[in-house]
Design a protein around this nucleic acid. Sequence first.
DNA 1: GTACTTGTTGAACG
DNA 2: TCGTTCAACAAGTA
Length: 274
Amino acid sequence: MPELPEVETIKRGLEKKIIGQKISRIDILDAKPVGSSNKNFKNKLKGRKIKSVKRRAKILIIGFDSDLFMIVHLKITGQLVYHKKNDQHNKYTRVIFYFTDQTKLYFNDMRKFGYLKLFNKTELEKELKRLDFGPEPLSSDFRLKNFREILKKRKNKPIKPLLMDPRLIAGIGNIYASEACFLAGIRPSRRAGTLTKKESEKIFKAVKKVLKKSLKYGGTSADAYINAEGKEGDFEKMLYVYGRRGEKCKKCQAEIKSIKQAGRGTYFCSNCQK
DNA sequence: GTACTTGTTGAACG
DNA sequence: TCGTTCAACAAGTA
């Protein structure tokens, strides 16, 4: 599942490949990700040149000339893959963007939760306001003080679902919320208000650390994630707890446990995390 | 066949 | 108004 490090990796890959590219044609193989609201999707994009690729939380924002922007959300199984000449589409390919130099960009999505939406600048700003994302955890503007304010406002919320709430902090999903709790030695079920000063600092640092480290390794390919070049990330083998139910803790050899929190799987070591 | 998985959103509720 | 909980979306795997 693409979370912040995965989406950021895709963003960096795309930036190198598609900026300056001009769209010559678009094939929509499945209209669902484009939605009924985007009836002129093809017409609006044809002939447009790509100016920028940005990321906010887990969404990608591709900027074109003439005040046009496309938001791409990959949700769980979405992929954006750039290919040179030969056709590489598969049964999950929903949209194909063809560029004037014969290269292509594929939007693949097995489970069809992802979407592509077009906006002008005003609409984009409105949309971002509506989405109401919390701070970017890797931004230098996001300080311990900000994090403690969030904990204070959500005293009763268990720490792991708190980390995953995109309106509180942007870009953290199930993998990194679980991993950050492990790194900090804190049980995912601990309520925000019960964390000591020291513990809140530990979690704060763990969040930044795990995201940065994953980014360094090109993300986690636990499910369908691949980057803009179609390659998997290498962070999966560095995971301490996520998806490791029944396996041994890499630090203490105890068995990794799993519970359900807010309907989502949570993994932790009951020995290392208090 | 059944249960379970995922990120996000919007509705329902207190 | 605000926070919390939960169903819904889709399609694959165990």
